[in-house]
Design a protein around this nucleic acid. Structure first.
Length: 273
DNA sequence: CACGAGACCTGTTCGC
DNA sequence: TGCGAACAGGTCTCGT
């Protein structure tokens, strides 16, 4: 479900409070309940149980699509994958049908990881790099420049769409934001990466940054039955708009499948050259 | 190296 | 109404 802007929104709400949620920074973890064993990627459950007990949440952040909870001595890492959601609620609330992990906090609160499709994963580690080590650049970091993108594009000979989805190439883009960025940059999703000119790479870089900032400003996108208050879904230019007019030229948006993923684009604005 | 298929999962929507 | 197919914001592994 979530991509960089949605995960960033989660991190901010959990860190700063808001939307009826208190900040979780400073909260102590008093216990946990694991309801689907595969949700815990590492370590083993007994080790997870004994290590997490009594640790305090010191900060909450994000790297790519990973949520990072800095604890007293370890880092709790959560990836929401397709259907994951996080809920802050009181301990007396009923355990939801799709809850996979529940952390009991101080003050009668708890953090619940709800995940119908069970793809989400949780890690507890003293060394976050063991989980995050292969991630590519952080797109909104100032060190990620148009020149860096150009060089990385030319170090592969791959179609742009699957390359942008590759988290070792760039961390945080998913199906929505890659389709939107390619449309804004007027690049066909099948274009081969090493064929981009410096000018086209600069355009792609600019629009990746722009669309991610727009997503964050709108608190992410909320589609299907998962609603978290973001409204970027109302501003999609191409994503899931097959047959509807391109906002730039009016041509019906087309859908094709690249790398097993739905891809939406405007055949007029994004011609395949 | 680049790509496609299959796996992991449940729920919703679409077409007949 | 019912029922199977297609589809869903992600990522891993395997085979060619």
């Amino acid at each position: 479900m979530p991509e960089l802007p949605e995960v960033e929104t989660f991190a901010r709400i959990l860190r700063l409070g808001g939307r009826d949620n208190p900040s979780l920074v400073g909260s102590k973890i008093n216990g946990e309940l694991l309801l689907w064993s595969r949700t815990l990627a590492s370590p083993s459950y007994p080790e997870f149980h004994s290590h997490i007990l009594g640790q305090t949440i010191q900060d909450i952040g994000r790297r790519g699509k990973f949520l990072l909870f800095t604890l007293s001595s370890d880092t709790l890492i959560i990836h929401l994958r397709m259907s994951g959601d996080l809920l802050v609620e009181t301990e007396s609330a009923p355990i939801g049908k799709h809850y996979r992990l529940v952390l009991n906090l101080q003050d009668g609160l708890r953090l619940a990881f709800n995940d119908p499709r069970k793809f989400g994963r949780v890690w507890l580690t003293a060394d976050p790099d063991t989980v995050l080590g292969d991630l590519g650049p952080e797109p909104l970091d100032e060190s990620f420049t148009a020149q860096v993108l150009y060089e990385r594009l030319h170090s592969y000979r791959r179609q742009l769409k699957p390359l942008l989805l590759d988290q070792t190439f760039l961390a945080g883009l998913g199906n929505i934001y890659s389709d939107e960025a390619l449309h804004m940059a007027k690049l066909h999703p099948s274009t081969l990466s090493h064929n981009l000119t410096p000018d086209q790479a600069e355009r792609l870089w600019h629009n990746i940054c722009t669309v991610l900032r727009e997503g964050i400003r709108r608190n992410g996108a909320s589609i299907d039955w998962v609603y978290r208050g973001g409204d970027f879904q109302n501003y999609f230019r191409v994503y899931r708009r097959t047959g509807q007019p391109c906002p730039v030229c009016g041509t019906p948006i087309q859908r094709l499948v690249i790398g097993q993923r739905s891809t939406h684009y405007c055949p007029t604005c994004q011609p395949f050259l």
